[in-house]
């Protein structure tokens, strides 16, 4: 991944020297050309093509923004409901993620998703405790988080 980015920047710099114009626009064109070259030569370069991973990061960010808007909308609806008929509670989410970085990301994402707020992480990092605004079905909630966020994070980090 790092090697490919360095290669891409080198190609862009070479393009600048070939064109003999040293401004940002030429660098950008060179970078695009480098991206295309690396894509066509991806069989000969070690590791998977790095823009696939970049695309996964971008889609994770988009997912994050979508969930943030949805969750705010749900909270706003609850705020203006005349009667508060929810059943809050804390449930345990077993997680397969290992490193500090992944768990931090997952906890942050959970905090900004509809109706959930991470409360604590167990000492062996195997469980995240989550407070949910409305908790009629724990299993469904767990599957929801596992299928959307955990999968997206794993695709980025592994």
């Amino acid at each position: 991944m790092t090697l490919q980015i360095i290669l891409n920047i080198l190609i862009a710099l070479m393009w600048m020297f070939l064109k003999e114009s040293y401004d940002f626009l030429t660098f950008f064109t060179g970078y695009l050309i480098g991206m295309a070259l690396l894509f066509f030569l991806r069989r000969f370069v070690p590791d998977a093509y790095y823009l696939f991973r970049v695309w996964k990061v971008v889609s994770l960010i988009l997912l994050f923004i979508k969930e943030l808007i949805l969750s705010t909308w749900n909270i706003v609806i609850l705020v203006y409901k005349p009667k508060l008929d929810v059943e809050p509670g804390i449930f345990a989410l077993p997680t397969e993620l290992k490193s500090n970085w992944e768990i931090t990301l997952l906890a942050n994402l959970i905090s900004l998703t509809p109706g959930t707020l991470s409360v604590a992480v167990s000492h062996d990092y195997s469980t995240i405790y989550i407070h949910a605004m409305d908790l009629p079905d724990v299993e469904e909630e767990i599957n929801d988080i596992k299928n959307s966020f955990e999968k997206a994070i794993m695709e980025v980090t592994r």
Binding site: T72, V86, L112, G115, L117
Partner: peptide
């Protein structure tokens, strides 16, 4: 009603 539900409002709505 309680601190946890209030935090829901504080973290999400205020952020956006």
């Amino acid at each position: 009603p309680d601190i946890y539900t209030r935090l829901h409002a504080a973290t999400k709505a205020a952020t956006l």
